[in-house]
């Protein structure tokens, strides 16, 4: 990876409120997409794995898949707004926080196990995001 050896001397520039709201919304929407998608997929009968017509019918008759589509569209719309204000190499790593939120929500809603090893991975992600968040959010349009 190409790196910059100069100090990040614009790192103290404040984050626009719109950007913070956009990043929080991106994490919430990502969490919603993943957990609702998983929940919707669980409603598809096992027989659909070898029967594309049954799989398609199951998807069309499950309103949760419509909810997934709406959430994905909202996610894309919000993400384009986020990229108006931030580097993509800044914003995308911040959304790695959704790995944490998805694990927590799936633990609570879908009763999936949150093991100590998984918690360790979450901690690493949290520290990594904290480091990225300390860098300048927009190196292309200095102001």
């Amino acid at each position: 990876m190409a790196t910059e050896t100069q100090p990040d001397n614009r790192a103290k520039r404040g984050l626009p409120t719109r950007l913070v709201a956009g990043l929080v919304l991106a994490i919430i929407l990502d969490t919603g997409v993943q957990t609702v998608w998983k929940r919707a997929a669980q409603t598809i009968p096992d027989a659909a794995a070898h029967n594309p017509r049954l799989a398609l019918a199951s998807i069309l008759h499950q309103p949760l898949f419509l909810a997934v589509g709406v959430l994905i569209f909202a996610q894309m719309f919000n993400w384009l707004k986020v990229l108006d204000d931030a580097d993509v190499s800044y914003a995308l790593p911040i959304t790695a926080l959704s790995y944490l939120s998805v694990a927590l929500v799936s633990g609570l809603w879908l009763h999936e196990a949150v093991t100590p090893a998984r918690l360790g991975g979450m901690l690493l992600i949290l520290v990594g995001v904290a480091l990225v968040a300390r860098t300048d959010h927009n190196t292309l349009d200095p102001s």
Binding site: P93, V127, G128, V132, R134, T139
Partner: peptide, 11 residues
């Protein structure tokens, strides 16, 4: 875009 060492370490 500038990828500072801090951003690289975070990644």
């Amino acid at each position: 875009e500038r990828i500072s060492w801090l951003r690289g370490a975070g990644l």
